[in-house]
Design a protein around this nucleic acid. Structure first.
Length: 171
DNA sequence: GGAGTGATGACA
DNA sequence: GTCATCACTCCA
């Protein structure tokens, strides 16, 4: 997958990302490849649920970079969260990878893929050891479900009610 | 339903 | 320097 794929509006990228494969390698060997089934959008400087809404800080700096790099951070002291940064430089946006066909939950997913902060700010390409592949899975129009995001009640009803969690349903 | 967990950001 | 908060998971 080319990095330009991620340098588009976050919603478009999120929709396109469903059905693509997340691939992990160690050395020259691919060790894991799972289809992405659930993502969550964090888009723009005004999104109160996004870490970037309070301005650029040391932690959120990757979100302000150009699309195509990873944003990894620690949540609740135990779980790494994997995001892929989208859109243009200086526009803070990212997509949280929440689940694949075989692994449900962002914390479990990163544990299984051995994702940690070393991948933070790295490009989603083969050299990094973690990247995305299009394996030709075609989605039907009604296969994507739009739901409110998780754990964002603190952001206020306007942002909490946005249907920015995208779920891939069975056929 | 409730606890664990530690980096992060706000405030002083 | 302190303190509250959190894009979660596990076990009950």
């Amino acid at each position: 997958m080319k990095l330009e794929f991620f340098q588009r509006s976050t919603k478009v990228v999120a929709e396109d990302l469903l059905g693509k494969f997340l691939v992990r390698s160690s050395g020259n060997k691919k060790i894991l490849a799972e289809m992405i089934t659930e993502v969550e959008i964090y888009d723009g400087p005004n999104d109160k649920a996004s870490h970037a809404s309070r301005g650029k800080t040391k932690r959120t700096a990757p979100m302000f970079e150009i699309g195509g790099i990873f944003y990894v951070y620690l949540c609740y002291g135990m779980y790494q969260m994997l995001n892929i940064v989208t859109n243009e430089k200086n526009y803070p946006a990212a997509i949280l990878i929440r689940a694949t066909a075989e692994t449900n939950g962002p914390g479990r997913l990163t544990k299984k893929f051995k994702i940690n902060k070393e991948l933070n700010s790295k490009s989603a390409c083969r050299d990094t050891g973690l990247w995305f592949e299009d394996r030709g899975v075609l989605l039907k129009n009604n296969q994507i479900k739009y739901l409110p995001r998780t754990g964002v009640g603190y952001a206020g009803s306007f942002w909490a009610n946005k249907k920015w969690k995208l779920l891939l349903t069975e056929k």
